[in-house]
Design a protein around this nucleic acid. Structure first.
Lengths: 207, 207
DNA sequence: CCTACCGATCGGTAGG
DNA sequence: CCTACCGATCGGTAGG
């Protein structure tokens, strides 16, 4: 017997739909997610799916939230078990780079793809994306700041700048793994990160 | 009187259509480019537009080629006037970062957006994109290699790795300028690039 | 959660 | 380069 994490059969169905929707969106994009295809994928009628969401836009927003929850579970929470500062930053980058492309199921990072799709489409979806990305960048910056405070990175480090640069490596990894080879791109991404933080680390005799 | 750069009225019409198609694709994505909307934008019937391209896919391929021509004109050719090596690399990055987002007309980099849209859609469009990107990355790597040969960058520099990292900054610039502020993102992008090449430059007393 | 339907739009074709 | 059309699919609604 399957335990339901939320009350009611309707809510359980909604979660099944959302899980499938997230997988479809990762492959076809958030903009390419249609109610008809989603209904087919979960074996329901279009209006049956529709009943769980007020509109396609609400469905897209729900997909963004569900994906964000998974990002927290797969990237942020495990990394938070590491000591604050550089170890945590390394754990984040390692898991983030895993997240960028799901090797088995295919599909890239929904957030990165959606940012490209919606950057010129004003509305609730773009606004939601921007909020999520600003929040994540802020979190990343604070982890970097802790590494600075711990003396693991140079005192004159600009955390927001370093977060910007690491995000760049995540995005070129997304790009290259989508068009070229994932394994090589991941190696390059990790090497880029290590090279980026190495010059910051004060020499031993200065600690 | 307007000089026609190619023979025949049909070819001229085709170029007008392609120009509009490129602008539309930059805003709505290459996947969001539809023949109906394009026909409206140029004031023609759908089948009138269609007659110039065998299929929507051929239209998408033509848009990619036209955009690549413009990239060559706006980024590569002007930068090629600079001395080979680091000056040329700086000129490329400066113009590339301008290219990433067209401030007045709106819309981001078609290549970056299309890579996200088509990375999971096997077919001629994805193949064409991958070829173009590989070619551009190779060109960028050779410019970096020349800077290494000239002693402007450290001898143990991996050109492909440095090209990968610079591409990352172009992509986070694309991302941030689409969701946040272009000016700030551009500043961060340039700072990231300068910081990246600075540690490579051998100190004066070593030259 | 279903059937049955709406107007609009999709890529593409016929025939001129 | 046009009108007129094809079957399919889009987001969404009515009514149950």
């Amino acid at each position: 017997m399957v335990r339901q994490t939320t009350a009611g059969k309707g809510a359980a169905t909604r979660e099944v739909i959302l899980g499938t929707a997230c997988a479809l969106a990762r492959v076809n994009g958030l903009d390419g997610l249609t109610i008809g295809v989603l209904a087919d994928a979960v074996g329901m009628s279009k209006s049956g799916v529709f009943a769980h969401f007020g509109s396609r836009e609400d469905l897209q927003l729900a997909v963004l939230d569900t994906t964000a929850q998974r990002f927290v579970q797969q990237v942020i929470e495990p990394a938070a078990l590491q000591p604050a500062g550089l170890p945590q930053l390394r754990a984040i980058v390692d898991r983030w780079f895993d997240w960028i492309r799901h090797e088995r199921t295919g599909g890239g990072c929904l957030f990165t793809a959606a940012a490209s799709e919606f950057d010129d489409q004003p509305g609730p979806v773009r606004a939601h994306l921007a909020r999520q990305q600003a929040r994540w960048r802020g979190y990343l910056s604070r982890v970097i700041e802790q590494a600075v405070s711990a003396g693991e990175l140079a005192a004159d480090t600009d955390p927001a700048q370093l977060a910007f640069e690491i995000t760049g490596f995540a995005m070129v990894l997304h790009h290259d793994s989508g068009l070229f080879d994932y394994t090589e791109a991941r190696m390059r991404g990790l090497r880029a990160f290590e090279r980026l933080i190495t010059p910051f680390i004060p020499p031993r005799n200065a600690r």
